[in-house]
Write a protein that binds this DNA or RNA. Sequence first.
DNA 1: CACATGTGCAACGCTTGAGTTGCACCCCAA
DNA 2: TTGGGGTGCAACTCAAGCGTTGCACATGTG
Lengths: 103, 103
Amino acid sequence: MTTLVPVFAALGDDTRWSILTALGAGDASASALADQLPISRQAIAKHLAVLQEVGLVEPVRVGREVRFRVVGAQLGATARQLDEIGRQWDRRLESIKRIAESL
Amino acid sequence: MTTLVPVFAALGDDTRWSILTALGAGDASASALADQLPISRQAIAKHLAVLQEVGLVEPVRVGREVRFRVVGAQLGATARQLDEIGRQWDRRLESIKRIAESL
DNA sequence: CACATGTGCAACGCTTGAGTTGCACCCCAA
DNA sequence: TTGGGGTGCAACTCAAGCGTTGCACATGTG
């Protein structure tokens, strides 16, 4: 498993979400994304590197360009881990409640 | 619903996770947390403000101190939203597959 | 009341990250 | 083979975030 915190850090940026949603319309290269977004190609390339680092995005070579696709499974996996953590906290609250009720 | 991105930004920091896990042992004030963690009380107070801002933590006045408790439900809600987004991407891939197969 | 503990506010230094520009390289297509 | 679009690397600016220190204020407790 990829460590969780860097994934959240990657998801905690509006520009990266705009990149992810743009990629939702289909795989695209950094240059293609630069045409749709109001920032430079290099800025996008850096964001793609961050997203790739945490497994949210995957490079696909097509001819001389590098297109990127969203890895939906990684989103799901992260969601499950986060949900599990939430459940642990709920269980902890349950324990506290049981203790309180037994007084 | 609180907007999603700031929640991820809040969760994308190791120090804040150490605060959250410390709070897992029970509600605590910024001063109490400062005894367990290697950073100053004010730094912790800022982190708690960030966490409270996105609803991950809740203040509880106890006498003259302000203790904080983790809102597990917010973690669960965020997880569900993230999972839903992941499913949308999967569905999109499904659509692409169906198109490809119909050629 | 007086003291001490907990909190809040403000200013500062430092690091990190986002975004930019410029340039070099690679590789497909005409 | 040559030109142009795509990519990668490097250096720079600028803003934001983390953490610190110092001080003022409040509020229980002795």
